[in-house]
Design a protein around this nucleic acid. Structure first.
Lengths: 139, 139
DNA sequence: TCAAACTTTGCAATAGTGTTGCATCCAATT
DNA sequence: AATTGGATGCAACACTATTGCAAAGTTTGA
């Protein structure tokens, strides 16, 4: 994606657009899946772990990405759509985790159903992951 | 719970009923919530981490407990009901994770809805966690 | 009953993820 | 140019998860 577009996206979320952040955002955009810190480390080999870690944290704090906890046990992050505010229940959606290839992706259209919770339980977000085999691994 | 009852439960899952395992099973039964390794460590102070770790793993392998991944980032385990086979979709249910007290509990009655996945995606299990504030923390 | 075979437990060590403190660098502002 | 604040890099550390191996315990069969 072009530099100005990336800048705009970061500014829209009130994130200072540095070179590093634009690279990482671009990387997230190009990969249509949820990524963990180690995925960034593997790609940005000359950047420091901490920078990558804090970038993800900043992105998360500012609502640029959302966190997903799947069977892999590591924390992954996926880009939010431009309109996403990470509010319950509208912005909540399911994810698919492939047990074969270890990849996690957003099923944005698959929103969460309304739920009937016990008395005085107040929901604020949802971590919804469907596990199985993805199409690539099915063959 | 009485010793013979615990033994029966373990044997029903084809788990060799040792003293340690009965203690841990009893602990899990008494706590109506999902527990992590550290919770067991805190309670069974004279047992070794490894034993507790491997007991949970054995319980999981044999279908005595199911794994839950919530925002805490640690792997938690909750007892399956006697009839549970951990099969999709019937045995899958939602969980509630309280962001205040860090506790996770099964919402067994809240089963997972049927979903419409992309072509050739095969589901086999679900990790469904609703985050928010529990009744104890609401006040 | 005893020995062999197998399982469970404990100890030690290690890998991996997540996290923080501090110093340095860079960029924006005056 | 000097000041300020945020971003980055380095080092260190905490915690969870995991494995190898030896010791202890249990089961089985001669």
């Amino acid at each position: 994606m072009e530099k100005t577009k990336l800048e705009q996206k970061l500014k829209a979320r009130r994130i200072q657009p540095t070179a590093m952040r634009m690279l990482i955002l671009d990387f997230l955009i190009r990969h249509n899946e949820a990524l963990g810190l180690s995925d960034l480390e593997d790609h940005f080999t000359r950047s420091d772990r901490t920078t990558l870690y804090r970038t993800l944290k900043t992105f998360h704090d500012k609502g640029m990405v959302h966190e997903i906890h799947d069977e892999s046990g590591i924390t992954k992050y996926a880009l939010c759509s431009d309109e996403c505010n990470c509010t319950y229940p509208n912005d909540m959606h399911a994810h698919f985790y492939c047990l074969e290839c270890d990849k996690t992706l957003c099923l944005t259209e698959l929103t969460v159903p309304p739920v009937d919770l016990p008395e005085n339980y107040q929901p604020s977000s949802v971590n919804y992951v469907i596990n199985g085999t993805c199409s690539a691994c099915a063959s």
